[in-house]
Design a binder for these strands. Structure first.
Lengths: 350, 350
DNA sequence: CTGAAAGCGCTAACAA
DNA sequence: TTGTTAGCGCTTTCAG
């Protein structure tokens, strides 16, 4: 069943059917009605492939994320899907799992499927891949940082605001010894977050201890590994800020394992405010970055050059962050010293 | 740049280029090499839309999930993407968020995009929607239960095995008072899991207490709500099995809130074994259902009728489940009685 | 306002 | 083995 079948039954030409479907105002309402009736009767819908082939627009938006397994991303995808669909776009989601080879495949696949635009939410991308995309003039949106060209926008996350609130919160509580677990250090967003942390520390008149800046990788495992290193230090902090919530959850877990009580022995702050942060034990104090806001900005940034190609467009979109205080932070009542000692005893006994 | 450009530069006809790309064995190797060289030089790739339009196959597989926000699904999607890509398919993922209207839109979108097959991992679908899909003869794969027709397969999850192991584990520990928090009761999978539970209880000679079967909805919130109800009972169980891990995490949290110690006061068992279950506090004993196994089965089930249309195909795929014992279960040392009493005192004081 | 017809980029008969 | 050509289902000039 195709457009011809509809045209035949409605006694019009296929051009009229096409116009009706695309709601061109130049169609006689009577004819239009007749066409719609037939369409309904037949439960007809146009073939998207054919439509794209001729019009050159696929009405597909790509979304590349670094790790679909990190709850931050599904929450982002959900918003992205909702908003994209609302505007008539289909979405193509792909997870690179931090693998440059997969990233390259992703981009190739998106190009093959002729996506109308792609949101690259991987917190980093390599130059040559970028070239591939830019050359085809596909509208792009990045997070944090991206090339300054027509059709590419970047979501500027105000890391500083939320992180500073976190540091101030800790400082107000009386913490002076604060550690930071970063994301993968090659990512721009990791550096931004760390820089925001350092700056905020300085603002509060706290000196940063280099030994307390550990590299994580935005995963549970990374958080656990970093926490382990922290625990092994001769001089332990009373609070730790994490580059994302998964890291913080890993920290929470290692603390639990080591008998370090959170927040009494150690305050911890996450970043993202994924849904599950509300129910960790204890509930996680964290810096919220709205997935929905990001999703909205992505779609808006991609649509702008698509739907009004002639105009010059906004290139930057602001994403705000805010501290959500829950129960993983409190006054520095004790330090972890006594626990480390008892741990050592245990260790030598093993 | 199109197939014609390649043909021109390689001094062959477009048909030869097409044949080369599709690796038909009837192409002279010399010509083929020339064609490939040009393709490489131009960084050419075929237009998928055009290809699909004529061949009738989109090489897209749909995947409909009920809630992308439940970590079970991203883990499933990851596997599905990996395997589908391996076989040359693109994937279209959609989350219905348990909304029948969204489900209906999903299906319509998949049909419009001419998917070659769709995996419906929503643990339930309404008949009329199903009709839409079957009429178009799209290969389908369901979980647990589906219509018995050509081209549709179903993944039979052996809930009984894992759940029985859970119950036996609890019984061996000495538990006799075991609660169960189900999924949304209209879902077939919820009923299967509950049935498996009841049966296993019976096998162990334990009588089921109807008051201890609560309805959840596979979310954190559902788990919390159910746990709250459990806590309010005059007669509380010593263990609780949950229909999925998110529910269990909600239970863990409410227990923590109420001062109920897990596992000392209450043992809890989850279902799914999502990644985060390893680091809950305490780490969750749970029934594992392999996402990767499911993903593999989905793709296999969808590919079979697609790639060998004439043959009759296996209609059912077995998915196994297994208990993973971690630390949320132990002997029933105490009951929750004393806590309930103290809680009441607190309550009257508020 | 409507219809006829020319493609969009590709595959698959059919010829050569 | 290779080339020519007729569409796949639709949008979009261009006439009428």
């Amino acid at each position: 069943m195709d457009i011809r079948a509809v045209a035949r039954l409605a006694n019009v030409s296929i051009a009229t059917v096409s116009r009706t479907i695309n709601r061109l105002p130049t169609v006689n309402p009577k004819l239009a009605k007749r066409v719609w009736d037939v369409i309904e009767e037949l439960d007809y819908f146009p073939n998207t492939q054919a439509r794209s082939l001729v019009s050159g627009r696929s009405w597909i938006l790509g979304l590349i994320v670094s790790e679909i397994t990190n709850p931050f991303f599904p929450e982002l995808i959900q918003g992205f899907e909702e908003i994209a669909i609302e505007h008539g776009y289909e979405i193509l989601v792909s997870s690179t799992n931090h693998d440059p080879k997969r990233m390259s495949h992703c981009i190739r696949r998106m190009l093959e499927r002729k996506v109308d635009g792609v949101a690259i939410m991987t917190f980093g991308i390599e130059e040559p891949l970028l070239e591939q995309l830019s050359q085809r003039k596909v509208p792009l949106v990045f997070i944090d940082v991206g090339p300054d060209r027509a059709g590419v926008s970047v979501l500027k996350v105000d890391y500083h605001h939320g992180i500073r609130q976190g540091v101030q919160h800790l400082a107000a509580l009386g913490h002076r010894n604060i550690a930071f677990i970063t994301g993968p250090k090659h990512l721009h967003s990791s550096q931004s977050r760390l820089k925001a942390f350092s700056l905020s520390l300085e603002e509060c008149g706290i000196t940063q201890n280099a030994a307390w800046v550990l590299e994580g990788n935005h995963t549970l495992e990374g958080g656990m590994a970093a926490m382990e290193k922290l625990l092994a230090l001769s001089n332990t902090p009373t609070a730790v800020m994490c580059s994302n919530d998964m890291t913080a959850i890993g920290v929470l877990h290692k603390a639990y394992r080591a008998g370090v009580r959170v927040p009494d022995d150690l305050s911890v702050i996450g970043f993202d405010d994924i849904h599950i942060a509300e129910v960790t034990i204890p509930p996680l104090t964290t810096v919220q970055m709205s997935r929905f806001e990001i999703a909205k900005a992505c779609v808006a940034a991609l649509r702008a050059p698509l739907e009004e190609p002639k105009l010059a467009h906004k290139r930057e979109y602001e994403i705000s962050t805010d501290l959500i205080v829950r129960e993983s932070t409190t006054f520095p009542k004790g330090t972890m010293e006594h626990l480390r000692t008892s741990k050592r005893v245990k260790k030598s006994g093993t």
